[in-house]
């Protein structure tokens, strides 16, 4: 599972370099997420701009990833492609996770909350 983590001041940006988060990679996603965020602190922005498909197993893995962060850290989503956005909306997960147009907008919103997008 190609995923990378970039630590910025106060936040981390976790980028998924895969086209799909589906049942065949859900467990790998959760394991890789755990490895990447351990040893860091602060909220995490999950950059999904490269992901053009997610199913309910992938969605469950993102929820599990959010829980791994514990109660003191937040998970925010960025760069939702149309199919991913559709699944988030249908399952009302867009009410659970703050959603940003892209990772840079998400990071900028931390500096200037007035720029918080969508």
């Amino acid at each position: 599972m190609n995923m990378s983590f970039e630590s910025r001041s106060m936040i981390g940006i976790l980028k998924v370099d895969e086209n799909r988060i589906d049942a065949s990679v859900a467990i790998a996603f959760k394991d890789r997420f755990r490895d990447l965020v351990s040893g860091s602190s602060g909220d995490v922005i999950l950059d999904l701009a490269r992901v053009d498909f997610i199913d309910s197993s992938g969605l469950g893995a993102i929820v599990a990833a959010r829980k791994l962060l514990g109660g003191d850290r937040k998970l925010e989503l960025a760069g939702l492609t149309p199919a991913v956005d559709k699944v988030m909306t249908l399952t009302r997960m867009h009410t659970v996770f703050p959603i940003h147009a892209d990772a840079e907008a998400a990071a900028a919103a931390r500096i200037d909350p007035a720029q918080a997008s969508t």
Binding site: S56, G60, A61, V63, A64, R66, K67, T91, V96
Partner: peptide, 11 residues
């Protein structure tokens, strides 16, 4: 309570 969020049942 984000730690209580469901991980399945969406299909």
């Amino acid at each position: 309570d984000p730690l209580s969020l469901p991980e399945g049942g969406f299909g």
